[in-house]
Design a protein around this nucleic acid. Structure first.
Lengths: 234, 234
DNA sequence: TTTTATTAAATCCTATATGATCTAACTTAT
DNA sequence: ATAAGTTAGATCATATAGGATTTAATAAAA
């Protein structure tokens, strides 16, 4: 017997999660269980379970007896997540090198071509999606599921903001070139080169991110600047 | 008005978590909600919540309609966790350097002295506790709560096995020396040196871990060896 | 005016109960 | 011995209800 359908708590969890990532549910917004139960035509129990799970993921902040609100993330947390991602993605790339096969390489090249195509059409939302797929494919090659999951979770936490590419279109062309270099390194199984490239790319992305945050006037980039000073020597 | 007491679900969560970490609850053991509800004199609802939370943490594996069992962790996962920890701890150390103050340094020196004392008494369980406190103090100095939490979670996941020190007493003396070097680097605010030392220490620990696993005949260390080959070039 | 108490409303937490659903073990038939 | 069918045990989902806690508004005191 196959599992017929998803449990309701999972269903609600996914709906709310998507809502938070897409921005339908805004930071600071309160999640009232009774209201959600009515909306999704279920009782409060599954709703509660979904919310507690979102809390574990960091998407909502839950205070006992006070309720759940969509977590507000400030620029500092954004930088923190990004720094962690840089670290873990560098590790994952390094570990993936010996496991990359021909199928992976063909797939990666194809995705990169697709990215070129959408750039010309200024479809930056699609570009972000393809970029994510490109990188996750690399990380998934290595048999380290826990690392993979951590990275994809951090990536998704990042998706709560409009893609960096949306604001810094120049980054897009750079990314394509960098992807090509990464593919080369993977092809020649050059661990250190792949590692360096990944770090280099992330460094550039972080710089782009600074501009991005200035443009959205999310605040001055001093904090990030300072963080980067400490990180850049690596 | 102060929060009077912990909620029951939190209480049960902590009890079970401790049980799993300490080894009272063995891998593969089934967690039956009705039984737990009886044991902790509460209803099944809080038990359920606690279990789902443990699932998010990776301590139990929960299959819908089938129940929860304490997660079995094999040596491969152990290595994976360790590799992730190395990465994140190196990052955390680097980020912590500018935030370490005199109080921290005094505290770190004191802890290291305490460690020397317990080594002579062969109290390796206490040594592990002190070692953890030593490192976490460093990581906590920097204002990156998410990174800190990730590291401490991984550390605790590791505690499901008896401390490395218990099996490789020689490591203990090494650790003391390495701690002293780390303190020096922190004192002179030498980011790169602190970073290198941390990586060096973790490398040695991983080697010790290999021996440890051989001794406990948890399996041959080829996997780890292979992983380390890929990682060591860093 | 500012601070402290009080109070009321909203919400969460826990408890208990029932039926549906799923898993795994057991039984039966081929 | 294998495959299909049955059954028991556990979980999932739901519902209801009273107690506990927090928030926010209001009143009293400094």
């Amino acid at each position: 017997m196959k599992p017929k359908g998803k449990t309701k708590n999972l269903l609600v969890y996914e709906k709310l999660r998507q809502g938070i990532i897409k921005g339908t549910l805004k930071p600071g917004q309160k999640l009232v269980m009774a209201a959600l139960a009515k909306k999704y035509k279920t009782s409060e129990t599954p709703i509660r379970e979904a919310i507690r799970r979102l809390e574990s993921d960091g998407y909502v902040t839950f205070t006992p007896h006070a309720g759940a609100v969509v977590t507000e993330i400030n620029k500092q947390e954004l930088s923190e997540i990004y720094l962690i991602r840089i670290s873990l993605e560098a590790l994952a790339t390094r570990l993936a090198v010996p496991f990359i096969n021909q199928d992976d390489l063909i797939w990666l090249k194809k995705k990169n071509e697709e990215m070129k195509a959408v750039i010309e059409k200024d479809r930056y939302d699609q570009l972000a999606r393809l970029n994510k797929a490109f990188h996750l494919r690399i990380y998934k090659a290595a048999p380290f599921p826990r690392l993979y999951k951590m990275i994809s979770n951090l990536w998704e936490a990042f998706e709560r903001w409009p893609s960096v590419f949306t604001y810094i279109p120049e980054r897009a062309a750079d990314a394509i070139r960098e992807h090509e270099q990464i593919i080369e390194a993977l092809e020649s199984a050059d661990v250190d080169r792949a590692d360096d490239l990944m770090k280099e790319q992330k460094k550039k992305s972080l710089e782009a991110l600074q501009q991005y945050m200035v443009q959205r006037s999310t605040g001055s980039p001093e904090m990030l600047e300072e963080i980067w000073q400490k990180q850049a020597r690596n």
